[in-house]
């Protein structure tokens, strides 16, 4: 299997300016940054963020990039508010448009996909786990690619499904991108939203509707990724095709 090459080079800290903030769900905001040096990146990579206090105390976190590599002059990070999150609550409560934040990256060379890698591709994201997958989907659209890609995602309610309108538009294009979205804590409110968790019957039906995927990316909380990866192994998929990224603890 090929991997998109990620060059090993120094990634210094740069000061980026917040140019837009949008609410993506009750718990997730999108922060758009303009960087002084436009980076090149591969969809799926992350950015490290550093907050520095006047006394020199630092806090760092990694956040996946949601935007497409084709629009690297303005990078979008989607940040979920965690209840005891020192950095995420700072972003949600304090950060304003015009603020300067130190970033480095893009980083990470495994959970990445480019249209050059081909497909078919199965993307499975739970909650904010859809963020790096969104970069892949947007990259595919920006390249006008017809590589078959199916995105399976779930959220507590329809309001928690970030980027839902954009994903529905891409699905409606009929160019090989398919969206399967589910809500876990309310009855389905729209005809294209199923109710219930991502489970074996859903994955079986998704796999039946597509040619066997060459690449599978699973991202979300640790229990979500563990459950989905185990189901995929039970369904006979080769472990070497499954790449995982887990958020939090």
């Amino acid at each position: 299997m090929t991997e998109s090459a990620v060059p090993a080079r120094k990634r210094p800290w740069q000061t980026a300016r917040v140019v837009a903030i949008e609410s993506l769900s009750p718990r997730i905001k999108g922060f758009h940054f303009a960087l002084p040096d436009t980076p090149t990146f591969v969809a799926g990579q992350h950015i490290d963020v550093r907050l520095v206090a006047p006394d020199g105390y630092e806090a760092q976190r990694s956040y996946s990039i949601a935007s497409a590599p084709e629009h690297a002059e303005r990078i979008e990070l989607a940040i979920e508010r965690l209840d005891d999150g020192e950095v995420s609550s700072f972003f949600h409560d304090v950060v304003q448009v015009g603020d300067e934040i130190e970033l480095r990256g893009p980083l990470g060379g495994h959970f990445v996909w480019s249209v050059r890698d081909g497909g078919p591709v199965l993307l499975i994201g739970g909650g904010s786990g859809v963020v790096p997958l969104m970069s892949m989907v947007r990259h595919r659209a920006a390249q006008a690619s017809t590589v078959p890609v199916t995105l399976v995602t779930s959220g507590r309610t329809a309001a928690d499904l970030i980027y839902l309108d954009e994903l529905r538009r891409l699905d409606a294009n009929g160019d090989g991108f398919t969206l399967k979205a589910r809500v876990t804590r309310e009855a389905a409110t729209a005809s294209d939203l199923g109710a219930g968790r991502i489970d074996r019957p859903l994955l079986e039906s998704v796999l039946n509707e597509m040619t066997e995927p060459s690449f599978i990316f699973v991202c979300g909380s640790n229990p979500f990724v563990g459950t989905v990866a185990d189901l995929l192994l039970d369904l006979g998929l080769a472990p070497g095709r499954i790449r995982t990224e887990r958020y939090g603890g």
Binding site: L51, G56, E58, V94, D99
Partner: peptide
């Protein structure tokens, strides 16, 4: 960073935490 006060630096010579790290009681996977 504007508006960030942080948790304060530990006393000199008593830091168990390497730069850029935070402590967790969970065991992330």
């Amino acid at each position: 960073t504007r508006g960030f006060s942080g948790k304060g630096l530990p006393p000199a010579g008593q830091n168990r935490l390497p730069p850029g790290q935070y402590t967790t009681h969970d065991f992330p996977v």
